[in-house]
């Protein structure tokens, strides 16, 4: 008769042990993990092996990075004048060809935007290995005379570049005085308001970094108040149109106190005035 395949006591016990979920999980996942961990620790105990691994990994990384698909060959600069693009190339010197993984576009952008003449820069790598730099230049809106010399300033008052001579930029209005560029927007508004006086206007001078003086030809000055200077100037222009105020013999129109505009006459005019007044009193 065939023997029954009865399990031995040990086999039976082991089978029952194996059916315990905890034992099962420990052997199935825990044991491989422990073995793998131990092997990794033993392997890493030799620094030479780790070094070799690191180098191999770097090598592999380099071979991928230096594939022709990732190489950048030239830099194209859009939206900048010739000298600005030269300045940009000097600021971010890149020796091509170079892998695109080695380019830090964000840092390059920050670097380019430190150039005064650059309002904003946009960098990207175009397919075909071109580093495209799109630059928005600052537009000079004012010319600023300082102690050091002439400076071009954009509409926000940001200095752009030094100017060699006033005559190079005849169309730009002139401002002067310390801190004049900080109030560039106000200056532009004043120039707009002073358009009727444009043939006599020489420029604006910032006084004590708080208010403007309008400087006209013949040494005349209009002292504008700190608050609402544009309105004051428009009032004065209206007065001038009605009474030809500025054509008269005076040096300063003081509008600093809004309720009380004050005129300062030249010495001759003052003497003349005194004389006329005395005639009146004598006549009486």
């Amino acid at each position: 008769m065939r023997r029954d395949p009865a399990p031995s006591r040990l086999a039976y016990r082991l089978e029952r042990l194996w059916l315990r979920p905890l034992v099962r999980r420990a052997v199935r996942t825990g044991l491989p993990l422990v073995v793998a961990g131990a092997a990794a620790v033993w392997w890493a105990s030799d620094p030479a092996r780790v070094q070799t691994l690191r180098e191999t990994a770097q090598e592999m990384r380099r071979t991928v990075e230096e594939r022709p698909e990732f190489m950048v060959h030239l830099m194209a600069i859009d939206g900048a004048s010739a000298e600005l693009s030269r300045a940009v190339r000097e600021t971010v010197p890149v020796d091509f060809p170079l892998s695109s993984f080695d380019l830090d576009l964000e840092a390059m952008r920050a670097e380019i935007e430190t150039i005064d003449a650059v309002a904003s820069a946009h960098l990207r790598i175009k397919p075909g290995g071109t580093l495209q730099v799109e630059i928005v230049e600052r537009e000079p809106a004012l010319i600023w005379r300082t102690v050091e010399g002439l400076m071009l300033v954009d509409a926000e008052g940001h200095p752009i570049a030094a100017a060699a001579a006033r005559a190079d930029w005849p169309e730009l209005p002139l401002i002067a005085g310390e801190g004049a560029n900080d109030a560039a927007a106000q200056a532009l508004a004043l120039f707009e308001a002073a358009r009727p006086l444009s043939d006599r206007l020489r420029g604006l001078q910032r006084m004590g970094e708080r208010r403007w003086d309008v400087v006209l030809t013949r040494g005349q000055r209009i002292l504008l108040p700190e608050a609402r200077p544009v309105a004051a100037l428009e009032r004065l222009i209206a007065l001038d149109e009605a009474r030809d105020l500025l054509d008269r013999d005076l040096t300063h129109v003081d509008l600093r106190l809004p309720g009380r505009p004050t005129l300062r006459l030249t010495a001759d005019a003052m003497a003349e005035l005194v004389r006329i007044r005395s005639l009146d009193t004598v006549g009486d």
Partner: peptide
């Protein structure tokens, strides 16, 4: 042994 076989 027979019980072990059946149970297993």
């Amino acid at each position: 042994r027979a019980i072990r076989t059946a149970v297993q």
